[in-house]
Design a protein around this nucleic acid. Structure first.
Lengths: 132, 132
DNA sequence: CGGTATCCCGTCAGATACTG
DNA sequence: CAGTATCTGACGGGATACCG
């Protein structure tokens, strides 16, 4: 999604296509998972690391910075002896999760159908291809 | 989104995480745009090319094949003199677009807020960083 | 017309090491 | 604890050329 020129008007969206601008960022490897993990609770960097499990420090750091830039989350630094940094969702972030959670639910519901479609497709491929 | 191991159980989703499995595929450069372009109308390969505008033959071909594999679209080949191939949405494809269109609408609505967040962030960066 | 095959390069993400 | 810096390999996607 990231290369489609945002500066050129595509056929159906004018100017810097908002959909791309938004989905390019959130559609990456980790953004959605981080937002989902922050739902309902403020969390520290290392807690996020542990809960997500297989994300590297670098990617978590980058992802958090981008989400903060775009206004989805807020970063709070406490000037303490061992540094403490907490992250939580902003109103924009929570707002975003509403339609997003519908999509997540759709994915959950229809995942079997997609698996089945893939199975059927590979079957068809080994047989002969239909025509109209 | 594509590298997070689907085979390992992450903290909040079990087994091959459906959300990743679905969003990894449609979260690419072109899938969503192709689905959106096919809304309400069956279209031929070259029509899609022209309407999308800046997609290459190869990427359109790949994208269509993936979408067909996953059951979002149907491909119909007419055995005619100049070959004719038409694509249209399946029920699954139309079903998918429902939550997706809510997300698209969200992006449209909140795009200004995000632009503003980015602007504010870069302002803050040049000044001094706040702490709590 | 509707593709596939090949080449090639830019970006992205992991590993590792270092810092305030 | 919470990051940043650097290096590197993998991969996505464009350009081009060819095929049924």
């Amino acid at each position: 999604m990231s290369k489609h020129r945002n500066d050129a008007a595509s056929t159906e969206f004018e100017q810097p296509c908002p959909v791309r601008d938004v989905l390019d960022r959130i559609g990456d490897q980790w953004s959605l998972l981080v937002l989902l993990t922050l739902q309902g609770e403020t969390k520290r960097f290392n807690v996020l690391m542990r809960e997500i499990g297989d994300i590297s420090k670098q990617m978590l750091s980058r992802t958090l910075k981008q989400l903060e830039q775009d206004g989805y989350i807020r970063r709070t630094v406490y000037a303490e002896v061992p540094p403490r940094v907490e992250y939580d969702l902003t109103d924009l972030g929570r707002s975003f999760l509403e339609p997003m959670k519908l999509l997540v639910a759709w994915a959950d519901t229809h995942h079997p159908a997609i698996r089945e479609a893939r199975r059927a497709y590979s079957q068809r491929a080994s047989g002969g291809r239909r025509e109209a």
